[in-house]
Design a protein around this nucleic acid. Structure first.
Length: 955
RNA sequence: GCCCCCGUAGCCCAAUCGGCAGAGGCAGACCUCUUAAAAGGGUCACAGUGUGGGUUCAAGUCCCACCGGGGGCACCA
């Protein structure tokens, strides 16, 4: 390779006298040249073991799969906060590559999504056009940062070749069912075979052959992992689409757009993620993830163990779920959710004699009371229900029988019980549940304590640990047992009586998977003349999005709950109505007109990076095993990406969905890893100050100055400072483009990595960037003649002190890079350079120190390091090493200075040989005259010698 | 209300198993190079670790309570 690597003479901006001073101009020339060269030489191409990207000879060292959460290419472009994680991963990737590891690092785009579609609706521009322009802009912005990505592996979820495989994965899921006995997904054909051979009973007990083919298909469809269900979903008229639970905020609004969301029963595609609840929760223990994300997922899945108990009630029985079956003897009433189907059935025509006036809601009959209450509850939004925690309800007029003691207890309807959790009915135990206590107090219901509160307990409901009391019948007694034992005993008793069983409940619901949008993956599904869904065979993939004129779903008044979703694709009638031969002759079908949610593509993109050009499979099995396979050297390894870095905002949605898909594909034998991300790391955010004037209007943050007496001013007028996001409307956006122009990419990278450890959020401060620039300039000046651009290094043998500083730096930098503590790594490099500046002022730095310094800088500031490396006479790139190795002999000092403490206060210091043993150190300490004086002849009570650290004399 | 994380110099951040509170940067003061300018060179100062207790020979680090900031969950039975 004959690329010219001498420093180009820059335009005279840095001054005639010093044409080779390192500044923005010179940096720009160096950076552009090295970026071109890396691209031309394919420096960051990662070798696959086989397939189109195969280069088995280039595989050296252990592989490492490094991954960033890929960005959505928005029209606004990147601001300086976005690349923080990207630079962080790049530094690690470059370091590991220099150490000889085979590193895969690529960057793609999560390119389906609402903004491009909304822009299309407004302007008529095809979302593909907007999306592709934005991707090009992002790529240019990322390229100028010098990120070492394998550009051959850059995929976008909107690429037809990509979403063809998203559709293929959907079909894999659709064509599977979950076998709870084997705890695994299995092909649907195996289920059909079980039915056909009568090894499995049909839901209504008829023989398989007695069912019509449509009935048979209906039965099979009800087992699929992707299925159609008429279910209560989150309908958002303002957006014209339904949303997943995860996309709705706690106050019942859409995460995007903040529109009201209503619960509606609609037919939608669902994914049976609940089948994986246990594995998703249990396998968290096998992952190297932050505790915060693990606990968020545990919380979201919400597993609770308890018992399902039946309370007889007239002809019917009310089923309740409880985590506290030990408190059954304290159940003094029951509550049904307003939507509970038994509410209508139970209410008798007349109130029982002597009914408490508080219970009737003023109604003449129970049916009237219940109907009125139900209607009122139905009008309340979820938000109203949550905000108003005063307990309301009415008596149904019916009584149920407590199965443990035969007591008749009243049944209420109240909206503090939710239909969506458990069975939608509870047994109320006011003695041990504060909500029930509040209700019981309001309605004059009895309270029985069945757990002995701890001494001095002064609260109302007691939820703590304690022994059971008041809990015995003729058959069984819990009295004296602790909570756990009592639960076990009573559950066994219930099971024995056929009154209940031990069950596990989850908060997790199935994943609503269809959206009424244009810019998403079409489903590979058609509907036949029987109105049944039919999966398209693989040979019909991809199902491409049709061209249409109007990209918008029908949207409505955001508050109008009584509207129906109407997807934009439903208007593409030529595309929707098709005649296909799916193996039984040409027939007419209607295409599914919903599209997949944005999460679909992000569920599996890391897998496609591995083998982006494979047209036969979504990934080659050997390639997947190489990059993501389980490591037999680790116990119970999950396999997966070696390090995944991204923001914590994806803690539940993306990370839960992709784990689910990954596990299905693993179960079906398509993947060898059973988790997608072995290690997860949440980077912090770059935040920014914004300033408002007296009217509360944002002023350009760039132009605000700090007043001498404190406070801030803009154009002389005082402004108020606030801290938070960077955004156009806040007038505080700083872009990487600006930083590259003013300082160069290396300075920008170094600045972002220096301001703190990667997981810490920190404020952006443009004026601090100059510090990083100065460091690079000083290194440059130490090694390069600013007048001629020639090397200044010498062949001098460095002095011992310099050797020690160098090797201490090498040892430290290894640890810092590995731990993603780039701020301390950078500090050590600055320290080393500061030492060189002093020690070799005016005469050039020894080559044996200069070279390791340059190599160690390379992960953080790759362009200037490459340039210096070539100025020092090396032809090739340093991207693949070597990386300096510390020499032990320079890590140990000859002598150690020990501080001597008397009673914990430093009184003196002694210097002893580094290999002096404890006794010698002790002797030296006690012989020190200041210590002798401090002791005043007293005998030390205790002597602590911490080797290499200090001596403490206790008197 | 419950759970998790974080409080070190004017600011961003270091500090290994508990072992001398300071590595680095910004801003500041002073000196200096330069015709001049500063993104030139150099020197210096600045906190006892949010507050109050405790454990220890020794606490920024461990324990308890409180205060402040950030995040998650929230009538989940």
């Amino acid at each position: 390779m004959s690329t010219d690597t001498t420093a180009a003479a820059p335009e005279a901006i840095d001054g005639e006298a010093l044409p080779f001073r390192y500044g923005a101009t010179l940096a720009a020339a160096i950076e552009r040249r090295w970026q071109d060269r890396w691209e031309a030489e394919g420096t960051f191409h990662a070798p696959n073991p086989t397939g189109s990207l195969a280069a088995p000879d280039e595989i050296t060292g252990e592989k490492f799969y490094l991954l960033d959460m890929f960005p959505y290419p928005s029209g606004a472009g990147l601001h300086v906060g976005h690349p923080l994680g990207f630079i962080g991963t790049d530094v690690l990737g470059r370091y590991l590559r220099m150490k000889g590891r085979t590193v895969l690092h690529a960057m793609g785009f999560d390119a389906f999504g609402l903004p491009a579609e909304q822009y299309a609706v407004q302007t008529g521009t095809h979302p593909r056009k907007t999306t592709e322009e934005n991707i090009l802009r992002y790529k240019a912005q990322l390229r100028q940062l010098g990120l070492g990505h394998d550009d051959r592996r850059s995929v976008a979820t909107t690429d037809v070749e990509f979403y063809r495989w998203t559709q293929w994965i959907f079909l894999q899921i659709y064509n599977s069912w979950y076998d709870p006995a084997r705890q695994t997904a299995r092909p649907i054909a195996e289920l059909e075979a079980e039915f056909a051979q009568d090894k499995r009973r049909t839901p209504d007990g008829r023989g398989w052959c007695e069912l019509t083919s449509v009935e048979q298909r209906g039965v099979v469809d009800s087992y699929r992992l992707a299925y159609i269900a008429e279910a209560p979903v989150n309908w958002c008229p303002g957006l014209g689409t339904v949303l997943a639970n995860e996309e709705v905020t706690a106050d019942g609004r859409s995460e995007r757009g903040n529109f009201p969301v209503f619960r509606r029963n609609l037919k939608q595609w669902m994914m049976r993620i609940t089948a994986y609840s246990d594995r998703l929760i249990d396998d968290l223990n096998r992952l190297d993830w932050p505790d915060s994300v693990k606990s968020m997922q545990r919380n979201w899945i919400g597993r609770s163990e308890g018992a399902q108990v039946r309370f007889p009630c007239g002809e019917a029985a009310i089923e309740v779920f409880t985590t506290r079956p030990d408190t059954l003897f304290g159940a003094t009433y029951m509550v049904l959710a307003p939507e509970h189907p038994l509410v209508d059935v139970l209410a008798p025509a007349e109130w029982p004699a002597g009914v408490d006036a508080r219970w009737t809601g003023g109604a003449a009959t129970p049916r009237e009371a219940v109907a009125g209450y139900r209607e009122a509850a139905g009008r309340k939004t979820d938000l109203d229900r949550q905000e108003n925690k005063d307990k309301t309800g009415v008596f149904t007029g019916a009584y149920a029988t407590n199965p443990v003691d035969g007591r008749e207890i009243p049944v209420f309807v109240a909206d503090y019980v939710l239909m969506g959790y458990g069975t939608g009915a509870i047994m109320a135990v006011p003695g041990q549940d504060q909500r029930d206590w509040d209700f019981a107090t309001a309605f004059g219901l009895p309270i029985i304590r069945t757990v002995q509160p701890s001494d001095g307990f002064e609260g109302e409901a007691y939820i703590g640990e304690g022994v059971a009391i008041n809990s015995a019948n003729a058959d069984v007694s819990l009295n004296g047992l602790g909570v756990a034992d009592a639960k076990r005993v009573i559950t066994e008793w219930l099971v024995g009586r056929g009154a209940g069983e031990a069950v596990v409940q989850y908060k997790l619901r199935d994943w609503l998977f269809s959206r009424q949008r244009y810019w998403g993956e079409p489903f590979p599904i058609v509907w036949d003349e029987d109105g049944m869904p039919v999966a398209l065979p693989d040979s019909h993939l991809p199902v491409e999005l049709p061209e249409i004129d109007d990209y918008s779903p029908k949207t409505y008044d955001p508050d109008d709950a009584d509207t129906e979703p109407e997807p934009p694709l439903s208007r593409a009638s030529e595309w929707v109505e098709v005649e296909l031969d799916l193996g039984n002759g040409p027939r007419k079908y209607r295409r599914e007109t919903n599209t997949m949610p944005q999460w679909a593509g992000s569920c599996w993109y890391p897998i496609r990076y591995l083998d982006p050009e494979n047209h036969e499979r979504f990934v080659d099995a050997e390639v997947e095993k190489f990059w993501m396979g389980k490591d037999p050297a680790r116990t119970d390894d999950t396999g997966g990406v070696d390090l995944y870095i991204g923001g914590i905002e994806h803690g539940v949605l993306h990370l839960l969905y992709s784990r689910f898909w990954h596990k299905v594909l693993f179960d079906l034998g398509h993947l060898s890893s059973d988790e997608p991300f072995r290690r997860l790391f949440n980077q912090g955010y770059i935040q920014a100050y914004a300033y408002t004037d007296a009217r509360g209007v944002y002023v350009p943050a760039e132009e605000v100055v700090e007043a001498a007496e404190g406070g801030f001013t803009w154009n002389g007028q005082p402004v108020r400072r606030e801290y938070g996001k960077m955004g156009k409307s806040l007038k505080n956006v700083v872009t990487p483009d600006e930083m590259c122009e003013r300082y160069g990419a290396d300075t920008f990278r170094l600045y972002e990595m220096s301001t703190g450890p990667l997981d810490v959020s920190r404020p952006w401060s443009t004026r601090d960037v100059v510090g990083s620039q100065r460091f690079l300039q000083r290194v440059w000046r130490n090694l390069v003649d600013e007048r001629t651009g020639a090397s200044r290094v010498t062949d001098e043998v460095p002095d011992d002190e310099t050797q020690r500083v160098l090797h201490r730096t090498i040892a430290g930098v290894h640890g810092d890079y590995t731990a993603l503590h780039y701020n301390t790594g950078a500090a050590k490099l600055i320290e080393l350079n500061n030492h060189l500046t002093k020690a070799y002022a005016g005469r050039g730095v020894p080559r044996s120190v200069a070279e390791p310094l340059v190599l160690m800088m390379a992960p953080l500031t790759p362009h200037i390091a490459e340039e210096l490396w070539s100025v020092l006479g090396h032809d090739g790139s340093l991207a693949h090493g070597p990386f300096p190795v510390a020499d032990e002999k320079w890590l140990v000092a000859d002598t150690v200075e020990y501080p001597i403490q008397v009673n914990g206060k430093v009184r003196s210091r002694v210097t002893v040989a580094a290999d002096a043993d404890t006794d010698a150190v002790q002797a030296a300490a006690l012989a020190d005259e200041k210590i002798v004086a401090a002791l005043e002849g007293k005998e030390p009570r205790k002597l602590i010698v911490v080797p290499g650290r200090l001596v403490n004399v206790v008197v």
